[in-house]
Simulated scan of single mutants.
Amino acid sequence: RLLGYKLAKNLKDCYSLLGISDGCTEAELKEAFIKRAKQYHPDSGSKTADPRKFAQVEEAYRTVQEKLVRERKKEEAEANEEEEEDAGIKHTAPQHRQYLGFEGVGYGTPTQRQKQYQQYKVDRAATRVVDYKVAKLSAMSESALVLQEKRQARKAKIVQVIDRMVEDMIAESMANGEFDNLPGKGKPLNLQKSEYNPYQDTTTHLINKILNDNGFKPQWVELEVEVRSRIKELRKKLDSKRDAFGPEPFSPQNQKKWNTYLDTFREDIAALNKRIDKYNMIVPIMAKQLGHIKPDREVAKVMEKFRAQEEQEKQQTVETKAEEK
């Protein structure tokens, strides 16, 4: 059904859901509800058990029950009014009704009223029994749904805790250098049949073997190699360019060339940072993610490096001249 749709606003759908006609009696209504409850209640053991469907059946039952009770009370009130009008004692009814038996139920002769009262008590008892069963089934349905949701939430929480714990342990081991001197480091994995992983399904093992035999690597591994290689290349080129311009201060012509190269360097770094973003999106381990390269910081490091070299060369020159004197 559509979200927000209320069965109580459409009696036709309520009758259809319960499988009864518009002119049914209260007894037929109760019988239809018990039949549907056995069919859809989540604890009934039926193959068609459905908590949501049972909730709709319960709502339809209560809606039709309220309608039938209103109609019955209306008919009894109209009958009582007709009886009092025929007897011409309408104005005395409130005064003498308290002395009548049968809780004021029924009309006609005392014998007729007694029969009507007996039927009324039977119907009232049956209604109370059905209401008790409905309340009990509703409580059981709610308990079953709540219990199922709690189980699912607990399971999800345990999985998340285990995943986080494993990732923390791996990151801590990597930080402590426990993976630095492993045998076979930097070499492709040997996935021969003799080293078959019993916890890995056969299909995955064969696929990995085919990929390994043909030199394939995971996309994030290839992208990491590409990114790190590009970082080294750009840093080496920046260092080489700075060395070519000689000591500071630059001449106006060299300063212009240097500024032009820095613009190109910043564009290359921006493109590299986009590749880093793509790598961070696919890398399976959070600790392996890379940060952005800041072009201004790289330029500042190179400039500081050459200034230190120039200062050291000047110091050596001064010391050499002093020794010569």
Rank of each mutant, 00 (worst) to 15 (best):
G4Y: 07
K9I: 02
D13T: 08
C14Y: 11
Y15Q: 05
L17H: 05
G19K: 04
G19A: 12
I20G: 03
D22M: 12
G23L: 09
T25D: 15
T25S: 15
E26I: 08
E28P: 04
E31N: 10
I34K: 03
K38I: 04
Y40P: 09
D50W: 09
V57Q: 05
V57S: 06
A60T: 06
Y61H: 07
R62S: 13
T63N: 05
L68D: 07
R72L: 05
K73G: 11
E85F: 10
I89G: 00
T92W: 06
A93K: 01
Q95T: 05
Q95N: 04
Y99M: 07
F102V: 04
G106I: 01
G108S: 02
P110E: 11
Q118D: 11
Q118P: 00
Q119F: 09
Y120N: 03
Y120C: 06
K121S: 01
V130M: 14
D131S: 07
D131N: 13
K133H: 13
K136V: 03
L137N: 02
S138L: 00
M140V: 03
S143L: 14
L145I: 00
V146M: 02
L147I: 03
L147R: 01
A153E: 14
K155Y: 13
I158P: 01
V159N: 11
V161P: 01
I162Y: 11
D163V: 02
M165I: 06
V166M: 12
M169Q: 12
I170V: 11
M174C: 08
N176Y: 02
D180L: 12
L182S: 07
G184F: 02
L189K: 07
L189G: 12
L191M: 11
K193W: 11
S194G: 03
S194A: 14
E195W: 06
N197G: 02
Q200S: 05
D201R: 00
D201H: 03
T202N: 06
T204N: 05
H205I: 00
L206G: 00
N212E: 14
D213C: 14
F216P: 04
Q219N: 11
V227P: 04
R228P: 02
L234P: 01
S240F: 12
S240V: 03
K241R: 10
R242S: 10
A244F: 13
G246A: 09
Q253H: 12
K256S: 06
K257S: 09
T260F: 05
D263G: 09
T264M: 02
R266T: 07
E267P: 03
A270N: 10
L272I: 02
K274P: 01
K278V: 07
M281E: 15
I282R: 02
V283Q: 03
V283W: 04
M286E: 13
L290Y: 03
H292R: 05
K294R: 09
D296F: 04
D296G: 03
D296Y: 01
R297E: 15
K305N: 12
A308L: 14
A308T: 05
Q309E: 15
Q312V: 04
K314G: 07
Q315N: 08
T320A: 13
K321D: 13
A322K: 01
E323Y: 15
E324L: 15
K325V: 12
